[in-house]
C-alpha cells in the first residue's frame, strides 16, 4: 500500500546514521522481518525515484515501524532533514521476508549484519526470540566505532551481540565474518541457522562458509531499485532456480534469498 505516514521519531544514532520511526499501523500490522519500505525523499523530481529501506523494527502493538539509514547521497540527505511531525510518502511492506516458520526453538540462530545492512537483523532477532529461540546471536560489523550501530538496538530484543570493526576501534578487529565459525561450531544447541545482510563481499563470504559447512543460510540482497513492486524488471540479481540460472527481481522474489541459489558476478 501507499500511505502518508507521520514521523514520530527521527534522530542521529551514529556517524551519518539515522533512526526513523513512522506511525503506520496498517504496514506495521502486516510487515515481516526482511521486508522493506519505499520512501519518497522530498517532493521534487530530482531525485525522482523512491529509496528502499529495510524495516529495522516492527512494533505491531504500537503500529510503528522503524528504519535505520546511512546518509549516502541526495535522497538520504533530504530524508535526514525531515522533522518529527512531517509525513512521508511510503510504499510497503514490499518484498520477501526471512523465512523462519520452519525453524525449531531448539536451533541457534546467528544473524550477521555488516554496516548499514545490520538494521533488519533487529526485527529478525525479535521475531526469532518471539518464536522461542533461546540462542540468537547478532554479529554486528562496521568500518569503525563511529559507524557502529548502538548495541542496544539488538540487545533489547534479547539477542546476544558480538562486535567487529575493520579498524578495531570497537570489539574484535577484523571482518565480522571472521566471528562466524566459532559461533556455529559445537555448542549445546541443535543445527544453527544463519541470516546475513550487508555489503556484497560479506554476503559472499557468509554464504560460501555456510554452504561448505552445510548450514542453512538466508541472505538479504541490495540492488538499485525503481518501482519496488516488480513492474520494471530493473533490480534483478542472478539465481539458480529449477536447474537454470536466471535473473529474478530483488524487489519481489527478494530481497531475501537462500544462500544456495544466489549466483555472484565476479
Amino acid at each position: 500500500m501507499q500511505v502518508h505516514a507521520p514521523i514520530i521519531e527521527h534522530r542521529r544514532i551514529a556517524d551519518d546514521i539515522f533512526l526513523l520511526t513512522l506511525s503506520v499501523p496498517d504496514i506495521a500490522g502486516s510487515a515481516e522481518p526482511g521486508q522493506f519500505i519505499h520512501i519518497k525523499c522530498g517532493s521534487s523530481f530530482d531525485p525522482l525515484l523512491r529509496r528502499p529501506f529495510s524495516l529495522s523494527m516492527i512494533d505491531k502493538e504500537a503500529g510503528n515501524i522503524s528504519v535505520i539509514y546511512e546518509v549516502r547521497g541526495r535522497g538520504t540527505k533530504i530524508l535526514s532533514t525531515c522533522p518529527v511531525g512531517q509525513t512521508l510518502d511510503i510504499m510497503g511492506p514490499l518484498g520477501s521476508s526471512f523465512s523462519i516458520s520452519h525453524i525449531s526453538p531448539q536451533s541457534g540462530a546467528v544473524l550477521v549484519g555488516g554496516g548499514i545492512g545490520a538494521p533488519p537483523m533487529a526485527s529478525l532477532a525479535q521475531a526469532l526470540i518471539g518464536k522461542g529461540l533461546k540462542r540468537v546471536t547478532v554479529l554486528l560489523g562496521a568500518a569503525s566505532k563511529e559507524k557502529l550501530l548502538p548495541e542496544e538496538i539488538f540487545t533489547r530484543t534479547g539477542a546476544e551481540v558480538l562486535i567487529a570493526t575493520d579498524d578495531g576501534s570497537a570489539g574484535y578487529q577484523g571482518f565480522v565474518t571472521e566471528l562466524l565459525p566459532s559461533q556455529v561450531s559445537g555448542g549445546e544447541v541443535g543445527t544453527p541457522v544463519v541470516f546475513a545482510c550487508g555489503p556484497e563481499g560479506m554476503l559472499k563470504a557468509v554464504g560460501s562458509f555456510c554452504l561448505s559447512n552445510g548450514i542453512p543460510c538466508q541472505l538479504s540482497l541490495e540492488s538499485v531499485m525503481a518501482c519496488g513492486v516488480g513492474a520494471c524488471q530493473g533490480c534483478v540479481c542472478r539465481v539458480l532456480r529449477r536447474g537454470s540460472v536466471e535473473y529474478v527481481r530483488v524487489c519481489t522474489e527478494g530481497p531475501v534469498f537462500d544462500a544456495g541459489e544466489v549466483i555472484w558476478d565476479d
Binding site: V224, Q233, G234, C235
Partner: peptide, 19 residues
C-alpha cells in the same frame, strides 16, 4: 533474460534504463 545489471540509473528528473 534481459541485460546484466545495472539496468536503471537515475538522472536529473529522469531515469536511464537498459532492461
Amino acid at each position: 533474460e534481459g541485460n546484466p545489471p545495472p539496468r536503471i540509473i537515475e538522472t536529473p528528473a529522469g531515469i536511464l534504463n537498459s532492461i
